[in-house]
């Protein structure tokens, strides 16, 4: 019961933050409401017993990535969003299409609710750092090394793109 109440609280915070991201016209307000969404998601991960994922959600997403966003917004001195005519196709086809997609997924999931079953607040050290590290550095060693190369390329790309042309 307490699990459901906590889930509903954090879920509502999540959705409210995401809606606020869309409603706000100034990018810095959108960025801060995205931080709220990520913080609430970290708490939902904790409810699911994923301690390590919750920690890196806060550190990497709400910390590093959002600081980068806020830094760029301040660097570019981004003001209020201009109102301009976008593509009509995006409005006419996109919005009903996305609403239909969301309703379809929600209806499908909720109609199979009893077959799917539920999840509990968790069971001993599932999602703790040690089992994840064992999996990451043994079974997923090659993908892990490849991501380090990916990060290196991303750093070089960012430096090249961000450099002022002389």
């Amino acid at each position: 019961m307490i699990h459901q109440i906590l889930f509903i609280i954090f879920g509502v915070i999540c959705v409210a933050g995401a809606v606020n991201l869309l409603v706000q016209r100034h990018p810095i307000n959108s960025a801060l409401s995205l931080v709220v969404v990520m913080g609430a998601l970290a708490l939902i991960y904790l409810l699911l017993g994923a301690e390590f994922v919750a920690a890196i959600q806060v550190i990497v997403y709400a910390g590093a990535i959002m600081v980068l966003f806020v830094f760029v917004i301040m660097l570019l001195n981004a003001g209020e969003e201009e109102r301009s005519r976008g593509s009509h196709i995006a409005l006419l086809l996109g919005v009903p299409g996305v609403i239909a997609l969301g309703c379809l997924v929600a209806w499908t999931m909720l109609s199979h609710n009893t077959q799917l079953g539920g999840v509990r607040i968790n069971t001993a050290d599932f999602g703790a750092t040690q089992p994840i590290a064992r999996l990451l550095f043994r079974d997923f060693l090659l993908p892990f090394e490849i991501t380090s190369v990916l990060i290196l390329i991303a750093i070089m790309g960012a430096v090249v793109l961000g450099r002022r042309e002389s």
Binding site: V15, A18, G86, G102
Partner: peptide, 30 residues
């Protein structure tokens, strides 16, 4: 015990809101 479907529906709602932002916002950072 929370039904798994609730998590999936929350995820679908967040994903759809993300698509809305992608379609409707005009600011490249947003």
């Amino acid at each position: 015990m929370v039904p798994l479907a609730w998590y999936l529906v929350l995820s679908a709602i967040l994903f759809c809101l993300g698509i809305f932002g992608f379609l409707l916002k005009r600011n490249i950072i947003t």
